[in-house]
Design a protein around this nucleic acid. Structure first.
Lengths: 145, 145
DNA sequence: TTTACTGCAAATAATTTGCAAAACT
DNA sequence: AGTTTTGCAAATTATTTGCAGTAAA
């Protein structure tokens, strides 16, 4: 896994540094979306010799290279995941923040339609959809808690 | 339009201030998604007596009240629109930022499925979908520009 | 050796907040 | 009058950046 990504990066002219190895390992092991802070913390557990700026730079580089994706889950910070992390939909309750995953296959049709009708390749691997979870579907959505 | 929202706000116990009137008018007249800055600028054209903090506070209040929605279009700032702004999908090219709107009806099925299978009321009125526009669909998505 | 990469600390940039003054009801 | 709302300026927070030192290749 990690080896894979490292190899790709080297092929594309990037240098292999222990920081990058650790960051890659962390984001892959997480097996889920993680924030830059999450990665930073996780890496610090293994070695304290890393800087948050490096985490941001590496993460951005991975996204640039199409090896990871960056998703806004509405919590004020971007979340990252490698593309090896299976595609899915995030359903996020705007009242309580409760998050559940929905099956990605729901989007197959949408993806195809968008491509054929708008000539647009939708990147729906880790889309976030906001709304109301079962426990918060009262009639007055606008009411203050 | 504006009167409508004002009335609703008053019914909910909010006070009517010229600032709020101007902000409401601006966001409604825009007829599209606007940033807090956009609103601020627009309102300043009419009257210079308004502060950006008030714009943010009013916009947040409208979202809280369910009268407007806040969408992240991936440009580093949130965009706002009243719910009177017709629902649609934003297709945003991650290479060039080019944005086009797609018909919201594409999501009807998705919305229904999410509700029946996950008991989740998806708020898909102004969803943003990232991907690649017609001009940027090269085979190597990861290549650097 | 060469040039990319990192750490550090300061810079950004959007948004939020505390508090006293102003204004709606 | 009483309480909400505003303006102002400072605080926050996530992320970015300049630059000199460090380390892959």
């Amino acid at each position: 896994m990690t080896k894979n990504l490292i190899k790709i990066l080297r092929e594309r002219g990037y240098r292999l540094t222990p920081q990058r190895e650790m960051i890659l390992a962390a984001i892959i092991q997480a097996g889920d979306h993680v924030s830059a802070e999450d990665v930073f913390t996780k890496v610090q557990e293994q070695s304290s010799a890393i800087n948050i700026a490096t985490v941001y730079r590496t993460l951005d580089m991975l996204v640039e290279e199409g090896l990871a994706c960056r998703t806004d889950l509405g919590i004020g910070e971007y979340m990252y995941a490698t593309n090896q992390h299976g595609p899915h939909i995030h359903l996020i309750c705007r009242k309580c923040g409760y998050t559940q995953d929905a099956d990605h296959s729901l989007l197959k049709k949408l993806e195809e339609t968008i491509l054929s009708e708008y000539d647009f390749v939708a990147d729906l691997h880790h889309i976030a959809i906001f709304g109301l979870c079962a426990g918060h579907q009262l009639e007055d959505e606008g009411g203050q808690e």
